[in-house]
Measured scan of single mutants.
Amino acid sequence: MTYKLILNGKTLKGETTTEAVDAATAEKVFKQYANDNGVDGEWTYDDATKTFTVTE
Rank of each mutant, 00 (worst) to 15 (best):
K50I: 03
V29A: 15
W43F: 04
A23W: 13
K13M: 11
F52G: 00
W43Y: 03
T53C: 05
L7V: 10
V54S: 02
T44D: 06
T11F: 14
A23K: 15
K31V: 08
T11L: 11
L5K: 00
Y45L: 02
A24Y: 09
A20M: 03
A48H: 12
Q32N: 08
A20V: 05
K4C: 04
L5A: 02
K10D: 07
N8D: 11
E56W: 09
G9S: 13
D40R: 09
K31Q: 15
Y3N: 01
D40E: 09
N8E: 10
D40K: 12
K31W: 11
Q32E: 14
A20R: 03
T17H: 15
T53F: 07
N35Y: 14
E56H: 05
E42V: 13
A34N: 02
V39I: 13
N37T: 08
K4L: 10
Q32G: 07
T25R: 08
E15Y: 10
W43P: 00
K50W: 08
Y45K: 01
G14T: 14
E15Q: 09
E56C: 04
D36S: 13
L7Q: 02
N35V: 13
E15D: 07
G9D: 03
I6Q: 06
K31H: 13
E42H: 10
E19H: 12
T44S: 13
T11W: 14
T25S: 13
I6W: 04
K31E: 04
K28M: 14
L12W: 13
A34V: 08
Y3T: 00
T17M: 15
K13G: 06
Q32C: 05
T16W: 15
N35G: 11
L7A: 03
V21N: 15
N35S: 13
V54W: 03
K10S: 12
G41I: 01
V21T: 12
A34I: 11
E56L: 06
A48P: 07
L5F: 06
A34L: 15
D47C: 05
Q32K: 15
I6A: 04
G41R: 01
A26V: 03
I6V: 11
T44Q: 11
G14Y: 15
K4Q: 05
E27Q: 13
E42D: 12
Y33S: 02
A20P: 01
A20N: 03
G41N: 01
K28P: 03
T25P: 02
G14W: 12
K28T: 12
V21A: 07
L12T: 14
A48R: 10
D40I: 13
K28E: 13
G41Y: 03
M1D: 15
D36A: 10
A48T: 14
G38A: 09
T25A: 15
G38P: 02
E19I: 13
G9M: 11
T17K: 12
M1E: 12
T18N: 04
Y33I: 10
D47L: 06
D46Q: 06
A34Q: 02
K4H: 10
